[in-house]
Simulated assay, not measured.
Amino acid sequence: MSEERVRIRVSESGVAIVAMARADKHNALDFAMFEGLIHAANRLAHDRRVRAVVLHGEGVSFCSGIDIESFLASSSGIDTLLVREHGCLANFAQRAAYDWSRVPVPVIASISGNCFGGGMQIALGADIRIAAPDARLSIMEVKWGLVPDMAITQSLPRLMAIDVAKELTFSGRIVSGRDGETLGLVTRTTEDPLASALALAEEIAQKSPDAVRAAKRLYNKTWTGADTAAALALETDLQRQLFGKPNQVAAVTAAVSKQLPTFVDPD
């Protein structure tokens, strides 16, 4: 069933297109959708051909959040989402959002329609969010008497001040994609977010995959709360790993000759 909920297609250029496929329910999160998202992130994390990922929802919405009714009707209930497997940092629900940060290439979320609750947190797990101006965004868990718990502590602090995060979380209010851009929930807005996300992914796919992966690792490990000495040392270490390697040489050659580079897949 998880395969039906999330579809993956990888282009010849190495762009992986991941689609949540429950359009009739605005891609609401049932157990199978959680399972499908975790599977997709794990598969793409280990696919060396992949240069960038675009994550979107089929139909009119990105993801309307958790399907409460499906879990209330389940014999195991919502507690299944809180199970943490041995050796995992994140629990089952958290992994649907957090695991996108562990995919070593850029993940771009294309947001249209409703992006509520768990759906908003999945989008926050992406590196970049491109939204339609009229998209509807909300950290909505307070509506159900809950706190946001899908790794939002790892994503939101990098995007906005704590008072703004608290106001959105305490109220659960719905903001437009355009207002979300101002607040920091999304990177930018455009009338066709999927086309823009795909165009950006294709542009990234033409860059050195070694450099792009290293840049994501650098920022993920150092952006907030990192020890200064460790952060500076990581810059040096990553740069040393890139210097003189085939893809770095190919990038320089292409830049000097003004021709398209030919890169090899990372080891």
Rank of each mutant, 00 (worst) to 15 (best):
L234T: 07
A195C: 08
V105K: 05
T80R: 14
V252K: 09
L55F: 09
R213V: 12
V256F: 07
S64G: 08
R7M: 04
A251L: 07
D127E: 10
D134Q: 14
G117R: 00
E191V: 12
A201N: 05
A132M: 10
A96G: 10
H46N: 15
E235L: 12
L72S: 12
I139A: 13
S2T: 05
T253I: 02
R9P: 00
Q154I: 12
N114L: 15
A45H: 04
G59Q: 05
I66A: 10
I108Q: 01
L82M: 12
V105A: 10
I130K: 00
V18T: 06
S257A: 15
I111S: 07
D99R: 03
S13L: 11
S196H: 10
E12F: 00
C63E: 02
A233Y: 11
I204Q: 02
P104K: 03
A251R: 04
A205V: 00
V252F: 09
L44S: 05
L238V: 06
S176Y: 08
W144E: 12
A123D: 07
A93F: 06
V249A: 08
R48Y: 09
F243G: 00
P106S: 10
S138L: 07
T190Y: 13
W144D: 15
R102E: 14
V103N: 03
R95K: 13
R173C: 13
A195V: 04
A123C: 08
S74H: 15
S138E: 02
L198D: 01
D99A: 14
A254F: 02
F92P: 04
A229R: 14
L137N: 07
Q241K: 11
K216E: 06
D265Y: 11
P104I: 05
A123R: 01
P193Y: 09
E191H: 14
T169P: 05
R129T: 11
R43W: 01
S64K: 02
V103L: 08
V105D: 04
D210R: 02
A151C: 10
R178F: 12
D179K: 11
G87K: 05
A151S: 14
M150V: 09
H39Q: 08
D267V: 15
L242D: 02
V10W: 00
A251H: 01
S257L: 12
D99Q: 09
Q259F: 01
E191I: 13
A16S: 05
L81H: 07
A21S: 12
L218G: 11
G184F: 04
